[in-house]
Amino acid sequence: MADRGHDHVHASPVDEDSPHSYHQTLEVAVRELLIEKGVIDADEVRAAVEEMDARTPARGARVVARAWTDPDFRARLLADAPAACRELDIDVSPAQLTVTENTEDVHNVIVCTLCSCYPRPLLGLPPSWYKSASYRSRAVREPRAVLQEFGLDLPETVAVRVHDSTADLRYIVLPQRPEGTDTFSEDDLAALVTRDCLIGVAVPRVTRTVAEPASP
């Protein structure tokens, strides 16, 4: 994944010693003003960044693995995703969350055509391509062509459903459990579930590196 492409032009990693662009200066100025006025404090900003770094797609994968191994949990997850996530000590508030389940006949994909709404509590920050104009515009126009660009070629018999997220309603995909994983532990299963599977631009595949430790 990491070698797929280069950072876009605004993306160069920047630290405090680099020359500030206007908007970086603006960030410093606004943050310091808010701290001086007692609206926020510096520790809260640090803690929020740490919390951001702690949210990774592993959380979403844990939810999926539980749904694959516990049919009752799966039913609760599809009926009321925020409540089911709370069972795993994952708080998805404040936005509503809906889980869309892939089946033999239906494949789900998520997008936010208007901006970049994303199930951040379960996946962390969205990748650049999710926020790109190309993905946002084309995902609802020609989803199959878009999925092919991600290397996912779905048969015509499978319907593709695209879910357009909003600030108040986020989606996540519950992929199908791959064949040949009957002996897998919940952790082994979670390891199959990548971020892209949860967005719907990929499906879980059994790879050798995961299958080996799963054998008795």
Binding site: A2, R4, D7, H8, L125, S134, E149, F150
Partner: peptide, 11 residues
């Protein structure tokens, strides 16, 4: 789609 994986900078 440009499949870039830009990690957000600190700022």
């Amino acid at each position: 789609i440009e499949l870039s994986e830009h990690e957000a900078a600190f700022w």
